[in-house]
């Protein structure tokens, strides 16, 4: 698995974790019959918190991932050549973590799918309002669609890395 695939896989895992955590939280609130369940202000706050958690987890996770990967590459390089200088190790780390035009193209193509899924979620949310569902339900649908869009984006990236992109 290449660096790009590992990075994408990590994003997918964090995306799924956030999505599962949010759905679990929502289901628990509804099952508890909590009065807050239909409070728009409350859910807007919850969604903002989850967005914040998502960003924080992603940033911290990416830092940890890159540090661990750099250590792994350095160890591998040392095993291959015990006399390898720090500069040589740094160079191989930089080369391993390089992103180029193919990564950009894959990201753009995958992002398109993410936008489509998010868009469908938003339109579905609007339809739900038209058909007298609560605003809270619309918020859930929109948030889940955005998160799902992000996860699907990751899967499509993995697909393109494996199958190639034209």
């Amino acid at each position: 698995m290449s660096y790009q695939e590992k990075r994408t896989f990590f994003s997918i895992v964090t995306g799924i974790l956030i999505l599962v955590a949010y759905i679990t939280y929502v289901v628990q609130k509804y099952q508890a019959g909590n009065l807050l369940a239909e409070d728009v202000k409350f859910w807007a706050g919850v969604i903002l918190v989850f967005i914040g958690i998502g960003i924080a987890v992603n940033i911290v996770g990416q830092i940890v991932f890159h540090v661990l990967l750099a250590i792994q590459i350095a160890i591998k390089k040392k095993i291959e050549n015990n006399d390898a200088s720090d500069q040589a190790i740094e160079k191989s780390i930089n080369h391993e973590m390089i992103t180029d035009e193919m990564d950009d193209l894959i990201e753009l193509k995958a992002m398109r799918l993410g936008f489509v899924i998010s868009g469908i979620g938003f339109v579905t949310g609007l339809f739900m309002l038209v058909f007298d569902y609560s605003v809270v339900m619309m918020l859930h649908v929109v948030f889940i669609a955005f998160s799902l869009g992000s996860v699907c984006e990751g899967f499509l990236q993995l697909y393109y890395y494996r199958k190639g992109v034209q």
Partner: peptide, 11 residues
């Protein structure tokens, strides 16, 4: 080759 052209090995 990747290092020479400034791309990743994957590319």
């Amino acid at each position: 080759l990747a290092e020479k052209v400034g791309a990743s090995r994957q590319t």
